[in-house]
């Protein structure tokens, strides 16, 4: 059975800003897919739809056979538990210690009272330590998160996903804020985790090279639509040129994660 199934999924933000213009997609369990494309193409919006943060404006999205339109309250939270997300900006809580940021991956399974208690006395130090060891920074377990470097914070975010132990891992530009050698290491880490633990892995990547090197399926997104969906050997320079043509990266430009993004204006 398919894990994700998208039919003509579109997302329009207020003021007629079209972030996604109708995407069809099907993902089988255990697949590893890289999404590439210019900034502002709608990749981040797509991921926020896939992890059930946003709702499609039109079209339909099924996750494990459930129509996400029908998920609310407790069932919505239980479904979100199945999906772990690594964000471009790490999205950790800066003033908390590393261990609490890692253990927050458990919140979906913990009771409210238990999770409050854990802020005073961490409930599962052993698992947190294990997860941090897996990403190579177990010595930072009791450090305050805002004292870590960008690359270390990204590892904490990955450890949080490990603790969450989801069926699907989404990583939205996980390496755009780290240097190239670390980028390769982090992508390799994500691939290993998903292979060893049989998880579906979807990654947004700035770097075409990393996408082509590590992923058996690569999807190009442009102007809120999928322009190709191929194995890496079928992706020609011409296709890549078309994907990025008409796009002039500007200083400070980034993929949009805001409520009011500035996507390509389709009129």
């Amino acid at each position: 059975m398919e894990q994700y199934r998208l039919e003509k999924v579109a997302k329009v933000f207020s003021r007629q800003q079209i972030a996604l213009a109708g995407i069809d997609l099907s993902v089988r369990p255990g697949e590893k897919i890289a999404f590439i494309g210019p900034s502002g193409a709608g990749k981040t919006t797509l991921f926020r739809l896939l992890n059930l943060t946003l709702r499609p404006s039109s079209g339909r999205l099924w996750l494990d056979g459930d129509d996400v339109e029908k998920l609310h309250g407790k069932r919505l939270r239980e479904t979100r538990r199945k999906i772990g997300t690594v964000y471009q900006q790490h999205n950790l809580v800066p003033r908390l210690k590393v261990i609490h940021n890692v253990l927050s991956g458990r919140l979906g399974r913990w009771s409210t009272a238990g999770s409050l208690f854990s802020l005073l006395r961490p409930l599962d130090v052993e698992s947190a330590h294990q997860a941090l060891k897996q990403v190579g920074i177990e010595e930072k377990i009791f450090t305050r998160t805002d004292e870590l470097s960008g690359g270390q914070q990204q590892r904490v975010a990955i450890a949080r996903v490990l603790i969450q132990n989801p069926e699907i891992v989404l990583a939205d530009e996980p390496v755009s804020s780290v240097d190239p050698s670390l980028a390769t290491a982090i992508v390799r880490l994500l691939i290993e985790i998903s292979r060893d633990m049989h998880k579906t892995l979807l990654v947004n990547l700035h770097s075409v090279d990393l996408a082509l090197e590590f992923f058996p399926r690569v999807i190009g997104i442009k102007n809120g639509a999928a322009v190709f969906d191929l194995t890496p050997e079928k992706i020609t320079d011409g296709l890549l040129e078309d994907l990025y043509s008409g796009h002039f990266p500007q200083n400070g430009e980034d993929d949009i994660t805001d409520e009011n993004p500035s996507p390509p204006v389709l009129q």
Partner: peptide
């Protein structure tokens, strides 16, 4: 709101999000 979004995506409820993400900030 970004850390809150991340906490929500783990399946946390609002009170948990409040005490893990909101109040510490």
């Amino acid at each position: 709101p970004r850390p809150l979004e991340a906490l929500q995506s783990t399946g946390a409820n609002k009170l948990q999000i409040f005490f893990y993400g909101w109040l510490p900030q």
